[in-house]
């Protein structure tokens, strides 16, 4: 077969290695359309240079060719990263190219690990490259909940210690302004404000989450609390709730903030009651919040049951058995 590589003098010294799939029927049926033929040829040369662990310009451009045809080919990314470091290539140039690939293949895992491998190099990136945040916002313009991008951003924050960099919070607020239901942005906000910062310990979703000796109710509880910060975050959550009362994220966020401060749900009783007046309930999450407040207050259990019954019968009948369980638990506590 005459192909791009087999006819190129630069590649004349390489003997391609064909795919061996162990099939007893002989050779794999070669595809009749043009694209797989090119792909098969490129990957046969890739196998050959990888087997020889060749660190060269031609191998580097071959990896680019294979990635352009199939970015999910995980093996090729590992090899490419090795060559980049071996030849001491300009990693900023690599990032520029990677930006285009990332924007084209939004669901790809490998691209983000590759990026992390590059940015991990203290020799190349002793400090945070600010253009990185611009690029991530370009990614979020395509899909503001892209899980890979958010996970990578979390890594960046910890690696470069960016918790208090104004840009982080600015971007979160920009995204929440555009879509207050963006749970990914809410999670990032929580990690910026309350996530563990001690990089000598393993990372965690809440402070002490990974510590088996910490009681479940104490996870996420800060040892030093900045009450002004807490009040500010609670206000932020309230404003978001007023914009979209049925949006789950700020309700969870508020619970997390109160827990971080070691403060109870009851201080929001007034606020949530505003959503649960006779004849007009504007948020099922407010009803649940009130149920939780009443459940902890002696003599208010019947009120809690009334709230849970409302949830079961009116707002969330699809989870009838869950609400029944909560009601039963309360009944048992009273009895």
């Amino acid at each position: 077969m005459e192909g791009k590589y087999s006819t190129d003098p630069e590649w004349a010294s390489v003997t391609p290695i064909d795919l061996d799939d162990g099939s007893s029927s002989g050779a794999m049926p070669l595809a009749t359309i043009a694209y797989p033929a090119e792909y098969l040829e490129a990957t046969s040369y890739l196998r050959a240079v990888m087997a020889a662990n060749e660190m060269s310009e031609r191998a580097l451009s071959l990896t680019k060719d294979v990635i352009s045809m199939n970015p999910a080919h995980y093996t090729v990314w590992i090899y490419r990263a090795k060559i980049l470091f071996a030849l001491d290539k300009d990693l900023n140039e690599e990032l520029n190219w990677l930006n285009d690939v990332s924007l084209k293949y939004l669901k790809n895992y490998q691209i983000w690990h590759h990026r992390q491998v590059l940015l991990s190099s203290k020799a190349h990136f002793p400090t945070f490259p600010p253009k990185e945040a611009d690029f991530l916002m370009e990614m979020f313009a395509q899909d503001s909940k892209n899980y890979h991008v958010w996970t990578y951003r979390h890594w960046l924050v910890r690696h470069f210690r960016l918790w208090d960099q104004p840009r982080e919070l600015e971007d979160v607020e920009f995204l929440l302004k555009a879509d207050v239901r963006n749970n990914s942005a809410w999670n990032h906000r929580y990690m910026l404000r309350f996530g563990p910062r001690d990089t000598s310990l393993p990372d965690a979703g809440m402070v002490n989450a990974g510590d088996l000796s910490t009681a479940p109710t104490e996870k996420g509880r800060l040892s030093i609390v900045d009450e002004d910060l807490i009040d500010g975050e609670l206000k932020f959550a309230q404003e978001a709730i007023l914009r979209a009362p049925e949006n789950r994220s700020p309700w969870w966020y508020a619970r997390g903030v109160l827990r971080a401060a070691g403060r109870g749900l009851a201080e929001w009783e007034g606020f949530v009651s505003g959503f649960v007046s006779e004849g007009a309930v504007k948020s099922s999450h407010a009803v649940e919040w009130l149920a939780d407040v009443f459940a902890e207050r002696a003599g208010k259990e019947a009120e809690a049951v009334r709230m849970l019954t409302m949830l079961k019968e009116e707002f969330d009948p699809i989870r009838k058995n869950y609400w029944d369980y909560r009601i039963r638990k309360l009944d048992q506590a009273v009895a």
Partner: peptide
């Protein structure tokens, strides 16, 4: 904080 788990510590 919501009682569920992410792909890595700190991930949504």
């Amino acid at each position: 904080l919501d009682g569920a788990y992410g792909i890595r510590p700190g991930a949504e």
